[in-house]
């Protein structure tokens, strides 16, 4: 049921972001307290250069992050303490993955997806946006998808918006 719901929301949102050349998530909405499978879509390199590294910073409010290994890419994670501990089925989780680094090569002419999974905290406010800063590093520099809109701004006002997901209200009974 959830898959159906997410798929539906994806279809709705796909039209909006389909033409975008920004780094985005395939699924743009998830409920607080749910497990979210992030599919990060990397549409191009840095000014024509191949991407050599994809770095994802795990924002506060997300825990139990597990990246999916990727053929041809080395996978590393950086762990650290969470800003706030999470209660996960009776256990308290205080630290975990804070950054994921895939190292490999993605030509500018090619497209690829980078996948990880994580739990969204129950405290995340409904209808708020959760932004996940992503940096593509190339030989000649970096594309930093890290901009977060200020009050009154939209993603479209930004040159390098961070990919984000809208938090749907937590479902009762989970």
């Amino acid at each position: 049921m959830r898959t159906l719901l997410l798929s539906a929301s994806f279809l709705v949102l796909a039209g909006v972001s389909g033409a975008s050349a920004h780094a985005t998530f395939e699924v743009k909405e998830a409920a607080a307290g749910s497990t979210y499978k992030a599919v990060l879509r990397v549409p191009h390199g840095c000014d024509g250069q191949a991407t050599l590294k994809v770095r994802v910073s795990i924002p506060d409010g997300v825990y139990n992050v597990k990246p999916m290994p990727k053929a041809g890419w080395t996978l590393e994670t950086v762990t650290g303490a969470y800003a706030k501990p999470f209660e996960n089925h009776g256990t308290t989780v205080t630290e975990g993955v804070r950054e994921i680094v895939w190292t490999g090569e993605l030509a500018d002419a090619h497209y690829d997806e980078f996948v990880f999974r994580g739990s969204l905290g129950k405290d995340l406010a409904a209808d708020s946006m959760l932004y996940v800063p992503v940096v593509q590093e190339c030989a000649n520099g970096a594309e930093r998808w890290i901009q977060v809109p200020a009050e009154g701004q939209k993603d479209s006002d930004l040159d390098y918006p961070a990919p984000g997901i809208r938090i749907a209200p937590a479902k009762a009974g989970h």
Partner: peptide, 10 residues
Amino acid sequence: VLVTAFEERR
């Protein structure tokens, strides 16, 4: 201002 690799201040 790129404060950290993932944080920009405008």
